[in-house]
Design a protein around this nucleic acid. Structure first.
Lengths: 236, 236
DNA sequence: ATTATCTATAGATCTATAGATAATGC
DNA sequence: ATTATCTATAGATCTATAGATAATGC
């Protein structure tokens, strides 16, 4: 019917692409990478193996050569994406701050780290949310991941500072959750759901929250002035 | 092959059930109700129209008599579940507390309300999370819903108390997010993801967080002792 | 007579596999 | 020779509809 253009822009009926034949490892990595992007956008059941293969420019048969089932691919992702990049440097930095007992900077740095993580690795955090909702909990759930090393690190510092009299002697788990939650909420709203939060950069937000949070953690009874320490009478 | 049991336990080959024939409205409500339960568990693409129909004990054809498409059903849910139950009473209670400027009780009551909402209406909050992730944002997204009336209410109180010198004069949006985020985080971890948070009842958690948050909101330089009402001098 | 309901099925889509083909490395 | 890749397709599943059936209300 249609007369083909005299000067085809690229190539008229040439084989679709010179089909780059990747090594098994490279193709596997590529599949994982595109799978992360798609699963994080649409969830497990909202993502088609066809789309993942297409994103890599290969057929589905290739995908199933690398992963026996769709579930396998999903679990491979959750396993793989284990340690977030740059976590070691962050821990080192945090430890230095902890050593000099710079509480405000400690909190600010932690918040900035959370915000940066959501900003730069949004797909990962979406994936964790989906995994949590869909019940593929397994590895991750930021929160639970955080539990292992990061949460313990934060909790230890809080307990230490409580012993030193710098933080209130409330439930340390409550204090840690208090510290992390504004950043988690801010980051989720802004990066996962794309809502408008209050303006300004992430670092400004971290600074603002840190300033507020440090006040929440300080013991509330400076002996001399402000609130007298022994208020044994307290009415409901 | 098998000889049928001489005394069938219930009824051997009787019509499966006396099929309760509901009115159109009742059936529609029932469909919505079970759809909420299933969509909230598995998300939009993880839920089969067949399962929704089966949960109501009817065929899929019935579902499609009430809703033209699966999408229609989903949107009907998100539209329907508009105003959370008991919100009016809550607002009334909050206004009374606001009138007597009981900041601590104001915060505690707000937190308790959030926790109660997640505890008693977990499916709804799961649904909102799924809707946000899957991009069916439309109505809801707790956060956004909250925006409209509830968020405005909280923000107004914060601004009022800032003017009266009882709260720090920081960005009121940051203050509101700070106030709400621990409860949102706690409730999401506990009720949506089923993680263990620190022990104790929700009300105890609300009290604990409120105690900490109130400290974060107070202006940080009490002139004489406690908070004098007219603090015109305030250094950064 | 009206209408809530069912059975049966079309048509699309999705996961997964079998068998053939072609590019690479020795 | 090895192996990354494709085409084609089986088999299951899923949304949605057409046409028949039976319970309700007047």
């Amino acid at each position: 019917m249609n007369t083909p253009p005299a000067v085809p822009l690229l190539s008229p009926l040439a084989p679709p692409a010179p089909r780059a034949r990747l090594s098994s490892d490279d193709r596997r990595r590529q599949l994982l990478s595109h799978a992360i992007a798609l699963f994080s956008k649409h969830g497990f059941s909202g993502t088609r193996t066809k789309d993942i293969a297409a994103a890599c420019g290969v057929s589905e048969a290739i995908l199933y050569r690398h992963f026996a089932t769709k579930e396998d691919l999903y679990h491979a992702i959750l396993d793989t994406h284990e340690a977030a990049a740059g976590k070691d440097e962050w821990l080192t930095e945090m430890r230095a701050i902890a050593d000099r007992r710079d509480d405000l900077e400690f909190i600010r740095c932690m918040l900035a780290h959370i915000l940066k993580s959501f900003r730069e690795d949004t797909a990962f955090h979406r994936l964790m949310l989906y995994a949590g909702l869909e019940g593929h909990s397994l590895p991750g759930l930021f929160h639970e991941r955080m539990s292992s090393s990061t949460f313990e690190f934060l909790r230890n510092y809080v307990v230490l500072r409580q012993r030193e009299g710098a933080f209130r002697k409330d439930n340390p788990d409550a204090l840690v959750m208090l510290l992390a939650s504004p950043a988690l909420q801010y980051a989720t709203s802004k990066y996962i759901f794309g809502l408008k939060v209050f303006p300004g950069t992430d670092n400004e937000a971290a600074e603002e929250f840190a300033k507020l949070l440090i006040a929440a953690l300080r013991p509330n009874l400076p002996v001399s002035k402000t609130i007298s320490k022994k208020t044994s009478k307290r009415k409901a």
